[in-house]
Design a protein around this nucleic acid. Sequence first.
RNA 1: GGGGCGGUAGCUCAGCCGGUUAGAGCAGCGGACUCAUAAUCCGUCGGUCCUGGGUUCAAGCCCCAGCCGCCCUACCA
Length: 593
Amino acid sequence: MKVLSAVAWPYTNGPRHIGHVAGFGVPADVFSRYMRMAGHDVLMVSGTDEHGTPILVLAEQEGATVQETVDKYNAVIVQDLTDLGLSYDLFTRTTTRNHYRVVQDLFTQIRANGYMIEQTTTTAISPSTGRTLPDRFLEGTCPICGYPEARGDQCDNCGNQLDPADLINPHSKINGEVPEFIETQHFFLDLPALAGALQQWLDEVDTAGTWRPGVINFAKGIANDMHPRAMTRDIDWGIPIPVDGWETKRFYVWFDAVIGYLSAAIEWARRLGEPDRWRDWWNDPTALSYYFQGKDNVTFHAQIWPAELLGYRGLGDKGGEPGAFGELNLPTEVVASGFLNLAGAQFSTSRGNVIYVKDMIATYGADALRYFICAAGPETQDSDFTWEEFVTRNNNELVAGWGNLVNRTASMIAKNFGQIPEPAALEPVDEELLAAVRAGFGAVGALLETQRQKAALAEAMRLVRLANKYVTDTEPFRLKGDDQRERLGTVLHTLAQAVGDLNTMLAPFLPHSSNQVAQTFGATTQFMPMPQIEQVRDLDDDSRAYPIITGEYSGTPRWESRPVTVGVPVAKPTPIFAKLDAIDPADPFGHDA
RNA sequence: GGGGCGGUAGCUCAGCCGGUUAGAGCAGCGGACUCAUAAUCCGUCGGUCCUGGGUUCAAGCCCCAGCCGCCCUACCA
């Protein structure tokens, strides 16, 4: 089965904090790794999202050019995601020539099919910068109730919808200046003409019942009330509109960002030297596609992106036909998570209420963070990160449960045999443990396939406890006499087998440590493949170079029990997972120490 | 204002199409054990399922109203 793993595109406005990766990166990676193990042909793509006004503002603040700014944060983000072990087939960026071309081609066909309509609107611009001021950056006195802090689009006091041009004393929330209102022309995506097709698709999805309730209900809600939505902006940073007379405008950042899933797949195929390979994931109607993101992105993945695809294919009220990309698949599932909050409040870079992925990995390791996210992350609703919870989960579950099982098993084998011992006849207690662990492949796998990662991890950890209990029940540490050596070998062999299987099961969650565990039990090659950074040239502009994340994942182990090999040497282990002391939230990375 | 989601043990969360005494992990308490990073194993304590109405033989689950938190509503996961 072909499986497209479409991961949200991080915005190049700074390093990633742990809330970002909890929402899209880690869940997408766990799923992708599992699906590869289950034998599917996974294509995992993403990249940095680099257009839009906030980037311009940021570049100004940093006193750098826009290109320097996005290059800088692209590099930082690429490093963060690679260090976390996110196994992208291609992590690229939206500033490639390939992406520009795909976006323009998609636009041209959507327009040819009649779903891009020109409309004139009144918009506020900042006289000092010449930039458009989005309604929400406008503030003024409400013409209806007199509330002095009404927003451009709505008054929070009386609740009335407002037209920004009607505000009394309008001013910019950014710098306080008085905006100028101008008439401007834009291309609007004709959502009403696509509403029927969109509704039909959502109804099918709803009937299938596979999406998370919050996501499908939200999608159906917004689909009930659709207006044309502007897909162009008065801005000079972004993808040019391929229409005469539109040279001063650019595409709306979200119009192009979601197309990245397609353009990245195309770039991947081109780099492979098989330029049509991407079609296996996009044109084959049996191929599956999963889109991972935070809840604030649902509107773009369950409405705008499907609408763009439907418009491209000509499936709306105005008819039409697909262009050269063919009949592009709609999402199989939009997998949206909640937000990870920091001690009850939202992450905020400006207020310093933030924990960066980089610091977290450097101090505590990638898998400790991955474990927390998988065990306590915002899978279907917001969740809290606290340092206390992080330490507790790490020490009591990861270290004391799994780490200890690995360590005690390897220690006993090393001390008594120095290699994986041969088993004699298995007793019922041995058979029971092995059967229970083997059954985990079915149970954990089914949960991972349906995006229930917390439950999947909990099930795997339940089996870890079962293995720890097996040690208590069989007491290998008391089998000391020569006459008990055969039984000791059998128990330790059984335990090694259980640990090996559990390591396979935990590998999607904890890929880095799965390699160390495999190594502890004698593996000489890498167990779980890891992503790497490569410097490449832009395929269509030799003067441009950038880093991508890619990897060779064909060696991914299968999702199945692998018999341990008798005689493989096992040395006295060093602990793989580190136990943590209490962390001072005021100085979590020990900088002040 | 509109649309959507959530509010279940001290903490983090499960509870599918309503069906017997509401579950798990962690923390707490008691005990066992010592191979292991004082880890593990067993037992145990612990809940007005946000509030108030309603439907039903039966409601954490459905309906209505309210309170609280969050997301979207033309550019931060």
